[in-house]
């Protein structure tokens, strides 16, 4: 039953919701790139990607702890330069852990299957299994390895590097430093990835394998290396997204904290056209915004439903997503 149907609330806080939606959407977009690239190259939906993102959250957290940050309820008070440096270090920490985890996952879980020529369904089931393994690792094993400082049943006590403060307002909606940082960094990273895929030798390798693996191999492209690179890029971006997400939701660092977000990011990838890099970006932003509007109109508990209904509606009219599948197409 619908708890409420409140168009008025949407009008009232339209801009505030738009800003929240864009912030979330850009995080979805970064994670979605990981799904989309792997799909483009391997035709595999890497369901464990949400756990790569989750490991990134723990990675940046661990990095900060290594630099001497103790978790506390409130934001730290440091100078600009220091905050900046630590944000950078945390991002690198997240990227390294996520990137390594993604490449490791590919090696341990997918490569042996590929060697044996396993059918697509087996890959999919392996992905789901790997997702559980990684979650339960953080849930049960990580706390034992780290003397209960990382992982376990409860969310990590947050390390807040930046406390949100209003920078300016648009039509009465406040825009905080955190919102701006998330959107700007995410767009910059997405743009960089786009340039990398479309403008470099490595990127050409990825596109060629996506387009036609056999011919690409005949032309001297190492498929295995391309696959590794693809997982690496996806992982690194998920690690960056992990830092941006924890800026926004400091309490979100928990073993199952990547699951729903990962599903949404996957949705975003499909929405924009899976396999299509720019589609992932568009899909992410769109999904983030629609989800905010939807939950305000229908009630908060309908948030996830709104996201999936949007997906279904779009796929009914454009089965390949808004921009279509095009990683391998010549132009992209």
């Amino acid at each position: 039953m619908l708890a409420s149907f409140d168009i008025g609330a949407l009008g009232h806080s339209f801009w505030a919701l738009t800003i929240s939606g864009l912030t979330y959407g850009s995080i979805y977009a970064l994670v979605a790139v990981g799904y989309t690239l792997v799909y483009g190259v391997l035709r595999l939906i890497n369901f464990a990607h949400s756990e790569i993102f989750m490991l990134g959250m723990f990675g940046q957290y661990a990095a900060l702890m290594m630099f001497g940050f103790a978790p506390q309820g409130d934001a730290y008070d440091m100078g600009v330069a220091q905050t900046l440096m630590y944000l950078g270090l945390a991002m690198i920490g997240g990227m390294v852990v996520s990137g390594a985890a993604a490449v490791g996952l590919e090696r341990v879980a997918y490569r042996p299957l590929r060697r044996r020529g396993a059918p697509a369904l087996v890959f999919l089931i392996t992905a789901i299994g790997a997702s559980f393994v990684l979650q339960e690792f953080v849930h049960f094993v990580l706390p034992k390895l780290t003397n209960n400082t990382l992982g376990g049943l409860n969310a990590q006590q947050p390390i807040r590097l930046v406390s949100p403060s209003t920078q300016f307002t648009i039509f009465g909606a406040t825009v905080t430093n955190v919102d701006i940082a998330i959107v700007v960094s995410a767009l910059a990273l997405a743009f960089a990835t786009d340039r990398f895929i479309n403008g470099t030798k490595f990127g050409r390798g990825i596109r060629s394998v996506a387009q036609d693996p056999v011919t690409a191999t005949l032309m001297g492209v190492s498929r295995e290396r391309v696959i590794m690179l693809t997982f690496l890029i996806g992982g690194v971006l998920a690690g960056a997204a992990a830092l941006l997400y924890t800026l926004r939701v400091p309490n979100g660092i928990i073993y199952n904290g990547g699951f729903i977000l990962g599903i949404k990011a996957f949705c975003a990838a499909v929405l924009g056209g899976i396999g299509n890099l720019r589609g992932a970006l568009l899909g992410g932003l769109l999904l983030g915004v629609m989800e905010m509007y939807g939950q305000t109109v229908f009630g908060n508990e309908w948030r996830d439903v709104v996201a999936f209904v949007v997906l279904v509606l779009v796929l009914m009219f454009r089965p390949t997503g808004i921009l279509g599948e095009s990683l391998g197409r010549a132009r992209a």
Partner: peptide
């Protein structure tokens, strides 16, 4: 973008 965060983190 990160500089912006750094700068404004001073305020609160």
């Amino acid at each position: 973008g990160l500089v912006l965060v750094g700068c404004s983190s001073k305020a609160p």
